[in-house]
Design a binder for these strands. Structure first.
Lengths: 220, 220
DNA sequence: CGCTCATTTGAAAGGCCTCAAAGCTGGTGG
DNA sequence: CCACCAGCTTTGAGGCCTTTCAAATGAGCG
């Protein structure tokens, strides 16, 4: 593993710190290689997951190949809790990642005795729903520049790197998350550089936020 | 109340029929006038709601007035269950509506004894999350025509009117839901009429789906 | 019946996409 | 250790879909 990845994964910001311990008993650890698929849309949903390190993307595909990445999940995030008996989206590792898999059936009985478990899952699901709401505003109503600014600030806060974002994903993933093309993503970043809002490092994989206040204004 | 509204609200399609009865004990009924605000983003979230009849929209606003309607809630749907102590979006009646308000604090203790209640809320939340995922694909990756087709088919299925959609909302709401402008919504509908996919009735408030198969293909 | 608001339609502009090619990066093998 | 290769990223030019601005038409209501 090269240095860049080590840096990217060194800060596991616990997204659900207060309630997550309720799940500490069960679950099995899984190591994922870059690009590995955890589950696909339509698969029987026997597990749900929590990210320990690395990044996982959840994806929806249209018949003609168009892709929408609904979220990037980082350390502490939960995903794979879907309605019904099968997954509604596909999950893949964006970079080498470690997750903990919880068997759904194990919790059916556990939840009846321990409401704390259920509340943990509820909190995680509500967190995902909240992010989805925010992302719908971005996709439906923001310009390319606003989307990019929102994305960078969001990622910076979630990775708890105050002024620096080590992007675990490539431009194509960013584009499919923000509802843009890779060219527009690249052009938008170039404009931000020109405006001295950001600076690229590590061959374009790391973005230094030079002016967070201005980015915040841009994020609309 | 005019006839159109009566028709629109006469079919309460139970979205969560199996589990909803668990909530039948509590809650107080509220009658909402058209446009009435149930709660606003940032308000303390003391209640969550279930639609009995009519339609409620949940909305997010940007500082400059741009609006994104994340969902239209019809009979049987639940909304207002947000992360944290305050609502993350605003809820307003699209048309005259009846909802049942459940006090959040009443359920904190109830859930510990009755896991069925918690499961009902979880199922409702997962349903909302699922819709959000589907809508993100629409907003991020579909064309105006595809968005409109998807919207009409979705509404038709949820209102359980096989081949007819009685729109409770006006063009402006549709536009803010689909990430378009009212002009584009209108033009897209006109194109669909020309292609004999739909037919307008009731002064543009009712849409007859003349060719659902073709619409399904268009929805992508 | 007239007023107001919603919807439709038109024309022009703009932002993002598509197509295309050059520039970089990182990994591999000589 | 360095050159080469494949894939990712950036940049350029042109086109298209949606938006913006504007005005006409239609519907609901006092």
């Amino acid at each position: 593993m090269q240095t860049a990845t080590a840096i990217r994964t060194r800060l596991p910001a616990a997204a659900i710190p207060a309630t997550a311990p309720a799940l500490s008993q069960g679950g099995t650890r899984r190591i994922l290689a870059k690009g590995a698929e955890l589950f696909a849309e339509g698969d029987a949903s026997t597990f749900f997951f929590r990210v320990v390190s690395g990044t996982v993307r959840t994806v929806k595909l249209l018949a003609d190949g168009r892709r929408q990445i609904d979220a990037f999940h980082v350390a502490g995030d939960m995903f794979g809790l879907d309605r019904g008996a099968s997954y509604r989206l596909t999950a893949e590792a964006v970079e080498p990642a470690t997750v903990i898999a919880y068997r759904r059936s194990d919790f059916a009985s556990l939840m009846q005795r321990d409401s704390a478990v259920m509340e943990t899952l509820m909190a995680a699901t509500l967190a995902n729903l909240d992010r989805a709401h925010e992302h719908m505003v971005l996709l439906g109503r923001k310009t390319a520049m606003e989307r990019m600014a929102s994305f960078l600030l969001d990622l910076a806060s979630r990775l708890s790197c105050p002024d620096q974002v080590c992007l675990p994903m490539q431009r194509h993933d960013i584009a499919d998350h923000l509802g843009l093309t890779i060219e527009t993503v690249s052009r938008t970043l170039s404009q931000m550089i020109q405006a001295k809002l950001i600076r690229l490092a590590d061959g374009g994989r790391t973005i230094c936020l030079l002016n967070k206040d201005a980015l915040q204004l841009l994020a609309a």
